[in-house]
């Protein structure tokens, strides 16, 4: 991607891509009925006035998760060949220009301020919060677009807030026609990746993971005696000082020790999985994975160099690969 393209994308961050726009219809019982029937949700507060009043409500309420449905643009607009030409379409077009033509929603974080009742008329506005660098995902290479959607009622009061994340990606090559596809092919096709076990992040180690997200490998350093340490901790094991800063690792390292994990398997990883203790040129060691090398080729003291794996939008981790041999 060119720097100019990156700049054009970055121009959308912080921008309102959907000005406040009301849904086509107010909250209504027929649409609620359609929803709860399809979801097989038998909570009586959605259709039975008496049951709803028995819970202290004034009458039936819409399912909370329907908030987004009230502002969906509908069939006609979805199938129309061209968008309305607003900023949201401009962003979609710009991403398509980069080859990111497919889309899948990955995250939705809803906070509901009140229940919606028939007659409410919901409107939504949407502001882009961030656009990720290009990431390799199981679906294909793409970018995560994070936005904040604010839902208002007819009086302008906020009724719900939703952090919303889409992956816009370049689809992988089209699979063969189904009739030609053998069972073996099906088995070999990579499935969408399960997410990695998440690290336990706390106030002592958050700086390290935050830097990792930006592909910077940090080493904690005692501000009093200058001793480097890893993993991160609140206090220097040498002199006991609580004051610290960090240095950025050069990325040069060697294999201190390693094991090969065959079993049990976790769906987030490729196997055989090499789990290594790597000693950085700066002297600290960290537990990591080796990539770009088979278990048979790994040797103690082998020189390796830093690389990064973007496991998911929130988690990037350092891995190490063999130093490219000269003459190869």
């Amino acid at each position: 991607m060119s720097a100019a393209y990156e700049d054009r994308l970055r121009a959308f961050v912080g921008r309102e891509i959907h000005p406040l726009r009301p849904g086509q219809d107010p909250v209504n019982v027929p649409m609620i009925r359609h929803w709860v029937e399809a979801m097989e949700d038998d909570n009586p507060i959605h259709l039975d006035e008496e049951a709803a009043r028995a819970t202290g409500r004034d009458g039936v309420v819409a399912p909370a998760s329907m908030a987004q449905a009230w502002v969906m643009r509908g069939y006609a607009a979805t199938t129309a060949a061209e968008g309305g030409g607003g900023p949201a379409d401009e962003l979609t077009d710009l991403l398509a220009e980069g080859g990111y033509t497919s889309v899948v929603a990955t995250d939705s974080e809803f906070e509901f301020h009140r229940e919606l009742v028939p007659g409410d008329h919901v409107a939504v506005r949407e502001v882009v919060e961030s656009i990720s660098p290009e990431k390799a995902t199981a679906l294909g290479t793409g970018r995560f677009i994070t936005s904040l959607r604010t839902y208002h009622d007819q009086d302008g009061e906020v009724v719900a807030v939703q952090r919303w994340r889409l992956l816009r990606f370049r689809p992988k090559a089209k699979p063969q026609e189904p009739e030609e596809r053998s069972e073996a092919d099906a088995a070999e096709r990579p499935e969408e990746r399960a997410s990695r076990p998440q690290p336990a992040i706390n106030r002592d180690n958050a700086f390290w993971f935050e830097a990792a997200r930006e592909h910077r490998l940090l080493i904690q350093r005692c501000a009093a005696c200058r001793t480097l340490r890893h993993p991160p901790g609140p206090c220097c094991p040498e002199c006991g000082s609580f004051e610290w800063d960090t240095v950025r690792a050069s990325g040069d390292a060697h294999v201190y020790s390693f094991v090969v994990n065959h079993h049990p398997r976790h769906p987030a990883f490729d196997y055989p999985l090499i789990v290594a203790v790597v000693e950085l040129a700066e002297g600290t060691r960290l537990i990591t994975n080796l990539v770009g090398v088979s278990p048979e080729e790994v040797e103690i003291d082998m020189p390796v160099v830093l690389d990064w794996v973007d496991a998911d939008p929130e988690l990037s981790l350092p891995v190490f690969r063999p130093v490219a041999q000269e003459g190869h």
Partner: peptide
């Protein structure tokens, strides 16, 4: 939402739903 409210019962008011898809 259905999964949680069928356990919690009709008096429950849903205040947040935060999900990640895999």
């Amino acid at each position: 939402e259905r999964f949680v409210t069928r356990w919690a019962g009709p008096a429950a008011v849903v205040a947040a739903i935060r999900i990640r898809l895999g």
